[in-house]
């Protein structure tokens, strides 16, 4: 009985909302607001395997490459800057300034600099996503526990072992926070760089549907973008849970004591 009510609580509202959309839009005459059933028809018709290979995978590939480079770069630079106080003082205002730019303005500049190829889009994603990772890594490296640092010194833990087991691990909750902030930015930049400068990709395709007044197809593209956003955030959460298990456990423990 309790299980039933829990399940109802979990999926009740989404089901009601979808049903409202389905039945509310059924037989819609509005050209711009087609019925959900025709959107679903268009979805199945449009997003075939070929379409995925030609339009969706290139987008996701650029997203992945840009995101991974941004995180790696952010962690490396952040570790360096966070470790040396004078480097931090020297660069902090510059970083604050660079971070303040709304990342989408990079798209026109990047188009000017390197055309409309893959390189431009990856560049835009890297440049837009590196800041949250970088700044959070700096915070994380700075905020590591002094007793733990002393422990490493006393027990002769140095070099790469120290980097791996102290510096990066201690900063990993902040690194993950930065990476979490960077993920939606990466999606935004992927989509709008394709809307502004591309001849393939998801953003480009969806905008083409809009320009060609293929309205149900366009709606299905919007749905697909939404699903991609949801799936990526779920994947991220899985990765975070396995990487930061110790952190959440420790926090939960502290609350108990």
């Amino acid at each position: 009985m309790r299980l039933v009510s829990r399940v109802l609580l979990l999926i009740g509202l989404p089901v009601v909302l979808l049903a409202t959309w389905w039945f509310g839009s059924a037989g819609s005459e509005d050209f711009y607001r087609p019925s959900l059933s025709s959107i679903m028809d268009a979805f199945v018709r449009t997003w075939t395997w070929d379409m995925f290979v030609q339009q969706v995978f290139p987008s996701l590939w650029r997203l992945l490459v840009g995101y991974v480079i941004a995180v790696a770069l952010g962690v490396a630079l952040g570790g360096l800057i966070g470790t040396y106080r004078s480097v931090r003082s020297l660069l902090e205002p510059v970083l604050e300034f660079l971070r303040a730019f709304p990342p989408p303005v990079l798209v026109p500049a990047a188009i000017l600099l390197s055309g409309i190829g893959d390189r431009t889009k990856i560049l835009v994603i890297v440049f837009g996503c590196v800041w949250p990772v970088l700044l959070n890594t700096i915070e994380g490296v700075r905020g590591r526990d002094e007793v733990l640092s002393d422990t490493c010194r006393s027990y002769g833990i140095t070099g790469t072992l120290r980097l791996r087991h102290l510096v990066l691990r201690a900063a990993s909750p902040q690194i993950m926070t930065g990476a979490r902030q960077a993920l939606p930015l990466a999606i935004i930049l992927m989509v709008i760089s394709e809307m502004m400068a591309a001849n393939d990709g998801l953003g480009f395709t969806v905008l083409q549907f809009q320009r060609g007044f293929q309205i149900p197809e366009m709606w299905s593209g919007v749905l697909l973008l939404g699903v991609i956003g949801i799936v990526l955030s779920l994947l991220f959460r899985l990765a975070e849970r396995s990487l930061l298990g110790w952190y959440h456990g420790q926090r939960a423990g502290q609350r108990e004591w």
């Binding site: 007793v147 002393d150 422990t151 027990y155 110790w246």
Partner: peptide
């Protein structure tokens, strides 16, 4: 020379298991 610090909660690596903590040095 080995040191045992007062702040046991902060001198152990929270991301390493007990055995790994002992083995790291």
């Amino acid at each position: 020379l080995a040191v045992v610090f007062q702040e046991y909660g902060r001198s152990l690596f929270p991301w390493l298991r007990v055995r790994e903590n002992v083995e790291l040095p």
